[in-house]
Write a protein that binds this DNA or RNA. Structure first.
Lengths: 197, 197
DNA sequence: GAGTTTTTAGCACGACCGGTCGTTTTGTCT
DNA sequence: AGACAAAACGACCGGTCGTGCTAAAAACTC
């Protein structure tokens, strides 16, 4: 891998760290360049525009989420085990990757839910895809047969709610019992789904 | 009410509208002044600093939430009826006050969860208080007696999760079925709590 | 209606923003 | 080792930001 690709990766990685704290739209080139001992223009040369950098950062978060959460799930047997591993990994992701404080998706969702553009599209597309993955996994929960489609969406909705509440309790309130509450909530959701058919 | 107080209210109201879209930290004085046909310095004179304006905006959101959600709840008989009205109003709040697109609390939570200061303190304090209110209301759910404290917190957690997921589905995905999913989730949470004792 | 206080506008400041440019350094390949 | 391309630099642009200062205009008081 050439020098250019190396520093580009370093830039995106550092920008991801920063974006979690100041937001994706709050990214600013100058301080980011200082972090990496780069000049602002030297950094900028790697991306034709700020939006390109933001898109790269968001895509990096998507890749990490896929590697850390989705793929391990697909390597686990279908059914409840897969679903539980997926959610467990998701909780870990919210608590923060090593050194990374928080979840970029939640931050960007608040910034770009009503701001049209490429960032909005990439964010919504990836999140929608994850939501559909969750629903697909929910179908395998009952032993008696596949869960109906509308109930799969309901499960995906409720699991997402547990994760979002977990994040609020963890990041905003610093509540020590957050994970316990979340696990309890998820267990009941999965139990109900498993016994629904 | 004097002229000063009138325009000050108009400023805060307009600033609240803007803050929901661009964030509380993303507020900028110039465009805000233009909205109100005021000069930037004329607007600024009403607040000693930008942070003072931001605090006023956040406090205004708290006041509106209290008037629109909390107080109607307290005027409803204790028990499930009160809880359901509270949550119902909360959903309405998320869908957006007349003309106001979205919930400032969710936006600000992502911006200020790790940024110390007066805004963080006001936000966390008010949200924590609301969480405790929810838990207190949950105690009256069972007919057989008050719900134990830890289960009240669990109910508050799960209801919050439903509301957060509802917001994501509504604002980010524009999902038409969001409210139906949310109502289903809440109904099951309240049913379980009612039969727990 | 005169006088006082409050409210507003105009202007300027220093800092920072994303982005451009020409130049110099560094890496890579033969 | 020399040639060429890639990468990084530093100065700079127009613009916007929050924030003071001063004076005019408007609102309130008696």
């Amino acid at each position: 891998m050439g020098k250019g690709a190396t520093t580009r990766e370093a830039i995106v990685s550092q920008a991801l760290d920063r974006a979690v704290q100041v937001g994706l739209s709050g990214l600013s080139l100058g301080p980011l360049a200082d972090d990496l001992n780069l000049s602002k223009s030297g950094l900028f040369a790697h991306f034709k525009s700020k939006e390109t950098l933001q898109l790269a950062v968001l895509q990096e978060a998507i890749n990490r989420f896929t590697a850390r959460v989705v793929e391990p799930g697909l390597r686990t047997p279908r059914g409840r085990a897969r679903m539980e591993l997926l959610i467990h990994r998701w909780f870990d992701w919210i608590e923060g990757e090593p050194g990374m404080r928080g979840c970029l998706f939640s931050v960007a969702a608040q910034e770009y839910d009503d701001r049209p553009g490429a960032i909005h599209d990439l964010l919504v597309g990836s999140q929608l895809q994850w939501q559909e993955t969750l629903a697909r996994m929910a179908a395998d929960l009952p032993r008696g047969g596949p869960l109906p489609a509308d109930m799969c969406q309901q499960v995906a909705f409720e699991v997402t709610g547990s994760v979002l509440a977990f994040q609020q309790q963890t990041k905003l309130f610093k509540a020590p019992k957050a994970r316990a509450w979340a696990e309890t909530a998820v267990a009941r959701i999965l139990d109900d789904a498993a016994n629904a058919v």
